[in-house]
């Protein structure tokens, strides 16, 4: 068979699922942020695939925006991680359980 939309979507789903698992499994905050970037990339794959398939450029424009926003978000998220590590000497998310009952 030839390359089809389904392949891209499946790949996108797999990467996304891996990203989700990464968020759940890892304790390090930075790694978690990286897993979130993975998820965003998975979405980008899907969007581009659809854009080409539908012969519509809107998908790629959207990818443009996603990349931009992801960059901004990564910057702010990492700044927060810096601040937290400065105050608590750790970026392990399991150490931040003050909001428990």
């Amino acid at each position: 068979m030839s390359l089809g939309l389904a392949h891209f979507l499946v790949l996108s789903g797999v990467i996304f699922a891996i990203g989700v698992i990464g968020v759940i499994i890892r304790r390090n905050a930075i790694i978690i942020l990286m897993s979130i970037e993975l998820m965003l990339n998975a979405v980008n794959i899907a969007l581009v695939a659809f854009s080409v398939y539908m012969r519509n450029m809107d998908g790629q424009v959207f990818v443009f925006f996603i990349i931009t926003v992801a960059a901004a978000e990564a910057a702010v998220g990492l700044a927060l991680a810096v601040v937290i590590s400065r105050n608590r000497k750790s970026v392990d998310v399991d150490d931040f359980n003050l909001m428990k009952w």
Binding site: I24, V93, D94, F96, N97, L98, M99, K100, W101
Partner: peptide, 17 residues
């Protein structure tokens, strides 16, 4: 129900998923 509020982000994400 209070036992659901563990304070761990990961638990919350699991619930989410």
């Amino acid at each position: 129900l209070k036992w659901f509020q563990t304070g761990y982000v990961r638990h919350y994400i699991v619930t989410f998923m």
